[in-house]
Amino acid sequence: MNCIVIDDEALARTIISKMITSHPALNFIDEFENAMEAIKFLNQSTVPIDIIFLDIHMPGFTGFDFIQTIKNPPLVILITSDRNFAIEAFEYKCIVDYLVKPITEERFLKAISKIEAKKNTLPSYLERADVHVAQPTDTATEFYVNIDRRLIKINMASINVIEAKGDYILIKTEDKNYTVHSTLKKIEDKLPVSSFLKVHRTYIINIKKIIDIEDNSVLIAKDVIPVSRSNRPELMKRLNML
């Protein structure tokens, strides 16, 4: 299980990191002295994170603020110096346990056992990906995809083509491709009809990105996309023909 540590105290980070690296089931990925740095990391990293060791009391942006900010947070073990710790922690289903500083190895191992038990009882908890669109389709210019629990913004205008691949869709943009756990139908409903068209059972294209059309295929960037016979008339209707 991949772990990160978020704590503004170097001492606490060092102690927890040591405990993580000593545990055979845990893989220490990185540590952060504030929540904002961690959010940036989660947005950019391709490494899936399974557990966050999160300090509650950090200046400016608390651990609870952090949890409320990230969509689909991984499992969280809170770290606190407050011995009379509030029950607030258990209002969040991602929080599995909390450790009071100074953390003992025995207590740390107990928290990891709870994580393992939770993962076993909730196998679907750590879902790999999902799509979240925040705005109404016609006015939205972007949407967010959840990949390995990181929300990644995709500008709709940058999309070339979207291809169905089993339970996933492959979103090809001008500079990057994203594999997202979703369906073509689901994303089609979210895209502006003025720019996007389903041209094949497994393809939605951005009409504005068409380079040329030949017989039953369109060229978008370097991809030749098939156009089914039934969808071709609609495609032709959408083109601004001379």
Binding site: D8, E9, L11, A12, H57, S81, K101, P102
Partner: peptide, 9 residues
């Protein structure tokens, strides 16, 4: 609050 951790350490 930070110093408290060191006190307990």
């Amino acid at each position: 609050h930070k110093i408290k951790h060191k006190i307990s350490i």
